[in-house]
Amino acid sequence: MTLARQQQVVSVPGFYLQPRTGGFALHMVASSAHLQQLRELTDKTLCEAGVGGETSGNAALIVSELVGNAVRACGDHVPVVIEVDAEESGVSVRVHDPESARQPCRSDVPLDDAEADSGRGLGLVQFFAPGWTVRPTPFGKQVACLLTYGEGDGVTAEQMPFRVAPSDPASNAPLGTLVRGNPPGPAHPPAAAG
């Protein structure tokens, strides 16, 4: 039995949740009720994974903004896939929607501009997760970002029950294999010779 199968899959019309260690994948039809459930699920799942309240709250906000952008691009009740995972370096958020032609654009609207009608959502994403990306997929597009942890607000490798083996040829585990603990090698890179 695989780790993912040990956790309970939740399926109701328009809301198919696949829990996984430290996160989840959710296939969802976007609606206000589902969006509220998604925000609560994000915060609860990340807190249970050991992520601090500030980072989990920020992740819930980012997930909400990215799903809102998908609704603006595709219309109400768009099917989306949301992936949220507590990783060693931060919280990974990925939102997939079926519209590859309409890409989100970074905005120059300041977050505190009282005259702006819109444009703050991606500004918030940029603020909390600089370097967010958009890439086409065979079924639309994926917007991905990483929220780094604040001081003392993260999950260490020792706390993570599993990690995905890298595609590094030096790794003994096949690509995508769940393995326990830290990657092989020194805990800290060697200091540069001076």
Results as ranks from 00 to 15, higher is better:
residue 30 A to I: 02
residue 139 F to A: 14
residue 188 H to Q: 13
residue 49 A to W: 06
residue 125 V to P: 01
residue 25 A to D: 15
residue 20 R to C: 10
residue 63 V to K: 03
residue 99 E to Y: 04
residue 136 P to E: 13
residue 117 D to S: 13
residue 112 D to W: 04
residue 119 G to E: 03
residue 63 V to A: 15
residue 135 R to M: 11
residue 144 A to L: 07
residue 129 A to R: 00
residue 86 A to E: 09
residue 91 V to E: 10
residue 25 A to Q: 12
residue 170 A to C: 05
residue 83 E to P: 01
residue 144 A to Q: 14
residue 186 P to V: 11
residue 82 I to A: 15
residue 122 L to P: 06
residue 111 L to F: 01
residue 124 L to G: 01
residue 92 S to R: 14
residue 1 M to E: 07
residue 50 G to T: 02
residue 20 R to D: 11
residue 128 F to C: 07
residue 107 S to Y: 05
residue 189 P to N: 08
residue 87 E to D: 08
residue 22 G to K: 04
residue 163 R to G: 01
residue 13 P to Q: 06
residue 56 S to A: 15
residue 130 P to M: 09
residue 2 T to S: 12
residue 113 D to V: 04
residue 158 E to G: 11
residue 117 D to A: 14
residue 166 P to W: 06
residue 131 G to C: 11
residue 154 G to L: 11
residue 36 Q to F: 08
residue 95 V to T: 12
residue 45 T to D: 10
residue 149 Y to S: 08
residue 175 L to F: 15
residue 182 N to K: 13
residue 121 G to D: 00
residue 141 K to G: 02
residue 134 V to T: 12
residue 143 V to G: 06
residue 42 T to I: 11
residue 156 T to R: 02
residue 50 G to W: 05
residue 154 G to E: 10
residue 172 N to Y: 06
residue 57 G to V: 01
residue 95 V to K: 03
residue 194 G to C: 07
residue 171 S to P: 00
residue 20 R to T: 09
residue 125 V to K: 00
